[in-house]
Design a protein around this nucleic acid. Structure first.
Lengths: 234, 234
DNA sequence: CAGAACCGAGAGCGGTGCTCTCGTTTCGTT
DNA sequence: AACGAAACGAGAGCACCGCTCTCGGTTCTG
């Protein structure tokens, strides 16, 4: 919107360059302090400019955070997609494993960024529409895997629990979003695997329990294997 | 430590009363603003005292937050324990359902408090030892259920996946914490159910995905039913 | 070439956590 | 009963924060 699609003048170039610099510096700061402690003044200081000048590029701290949010969603999405892409398409279990481990690995390296994406929302802050696209990238990879399994007619292990009507209705929009046919039973299992994944990573990163007790690497790996089994990936 | 175990003087009474008042006010503020925006000055203002006076009772904002953390862990623990207690002991599935729904219900009513407990940690803040006891109350209820099922010899539905040695070693300290025998397969399933529960509630509350798409009530109920099945509770 | 648009710097507003000092009150001890 | 120590509340102040406004200078555009 405010950024010109094609930079024409020298000022345009300077503008997008400085925007990039500010964002990069914010990102660097995020590697150390966590989303809530992100300081516009600190960014300005680092860049050798007045804090007020930053507001020429981002109208508020929240806008900056939103940009950071999109960047991180895309970055994690890219990481997950790349990991999944590297595995032969026929090997569903390994593709799933690569996906899940890629997300966790990215989260471990980028703790505060993960907190920004999947932790408690910042202030009263409501994520604008621009973020939902990038936010869906990682789940999209996962749901794509499930759709592949469906397409291939991969059977699901027993027991098959009945899916109540309400749940079916609730899941219908999700199935539409994927755009490919997924059976109810399979979709339900997928919709249980996603919070399992995010929940486990969050519990580990936020250290809310089992700190120093659980071997997170081993447990996560086993958890992923179990999920693969449950989803019929192997 | 600093609080005398038995109030002896008038000043002691005033002290514990004011401490209670500050905490209560902080808690009330938490109902509206979220843990990161909690303001010591605002609390002082509300209580009609100088902000510096608050520091006579809590040496820092983090100490106040820690007290709040313990209070909320206990409150949610109490809510969950009460819900579980109200169900006849023999009905494992219903006890589990009551437990899970009680946690979600508490979280829905106390959003910021839930964020404090299970969201991203506040600043650089590391939760002190005092919190791990209260923090374990809710998981303890759940693990107690699992131990009951074990004691009763309730069978687990197939398939039983092998538990690798590393995972067994990782889980051993957890089993010790419970203090009652739980088989590996059962414990693994339990240790997958907990992040599932927290993950689902977090995803719902933090609105990271499926906002306005999913029927959270129906989905959560079904998810709990499935977990009950998986744990052999019915 | 003039006007408009944009820019960076600086001052300033109201807010924050926290510290220090000061005069007062209360407590435990002699 | 009196004294010293400890605790107390209030206020000023420090360094930080997000954000706004104004002002002089640059750059682009018609």
């Amino acid at each position: 919107m405010s950024t010109p699609s094609a930079p024409r003048t020298a000022r345009d170039f300077a503008r997008i360059e400085l925007t990039r610099l500010i964002l990069a510096n914010a990102r660097a700061q995020l590697a150390e302090v966590g989303p809530g402690e992100l300081s516009v003044r600190q960014i300005a200081r680092e860049l050798g400019m007045a804090s007020s000048a930053v507001y020429r590029y981002f109208p508020s701290r929240d806008h900056l955070i939103t940009a950071l949010l999109i960047e991180c969603y895309d970055e994690s999405g890219e990481a997950v997609e790349a990991a999944e892409r590297a595995v032969p398409k026929a090997q569903l279990a390994r593709r799933w494993g690569a996906t899940a481990h890629a997300l966790r690995d990215w989260a471990l390296v980028n703790r505060h960024e993960y907190a920004l994406l999947y932790g408690s929302p910042v202030p009263g802050y409501a994520a604008p529409q621009d973020t939902i696209g990038p936010a869906a990238r990682v789940p999209a990879v996962f749901l794509g895997l499930v759709a592949d399994a469906e397409e291939r007619g991969v059977p699901l292990p027993s027991p098959h629990a009945p899916v109540p009507r309400k749940e079916k209705a609730s899941l219908a929009p999700i199935a539409d979003m994927v755009g490919r046919p997924i059976g109810d039973e399979r979709l339900v299992r997928a919709m249980m695997t996603w919070p399992l994944l995010v929940g486990q990573i969050s519990l580990e990163l936020f250290g809310h329990l089992y700190r120093g007790v659980l071997d997170y690497d081993a447990h996560f790996a086993h958890l992923v294997d179990r999920a693969a089994l449950d989803l019929g990936f192997r």
